[in-house]
């Protein structure tokens, strides 16, 4: 119990961020029209690609003889990039079509 409380105290900043972000996340998309559900899902998908930063740190910290970290880190960076780049490009392609619709109107 004591260690748990210590852990909370040590990480309180992070815990605050988590709680606030949960509310922000819910609030921000609360009024999305159903038309935009697919692009929104795709856009959110690209944003969680931020996990790539962790992969970059793993990769950048790996010692030259630590092949496990190098190989897995390399793979992680490739996959993370796929998530980010693919996600944003696909979302843009979807939204481009909506845009085209609006101009002649």
């Amino acid at each position: 119990m004591g260690s748990f409380l210590n852990w909370i105290t040590a990480n309180q900043q992070i815990i605050y961020i988590v709680i606030l972000m949960i509310f922000v996340g819910i609030e921000v998309i609360g009024h999305v029209p159903s038309v935009l559900h697919t692009p929104l899902m795709s856009g959110a998908n690209a944003i969680h690609g931020v996990v790539i930063i962790g992969a970059i740190i793993v990769m950048g910290k790996a010692e030259h003889d630590n092949y496990l970290a190098l190989i897995l880190g390399f793979l992680a960076v490739v996959l993370g990039t796929l998530n980010v780049v693919g996600g944003f490009v696909v979302t843009d392609r979807m939204l481009e079509m909506f845009k085209k619709k609006k101009s002649p109107k």
């Binding site: 992070i14 961020i17 988590v18 972000m21 949960i22 509310f23 922000v24 996340g25 819910i26 921000v28 998309i29 609360g30 999305v32 559900h37 929104l40 899902m41 959110a44 998908n45 944003i47 969680h48 931020v50 996990v51 930063i53 962790g54």
Partner: peptide, 17 residues
Amino acid sequence: KVMLTGGILVGAAGTLL
């Protein structure tokens, strides 16, 4: 912090969606 905010943001918004 950016991984944290991005991740939780998507976690919450995705759950609502």
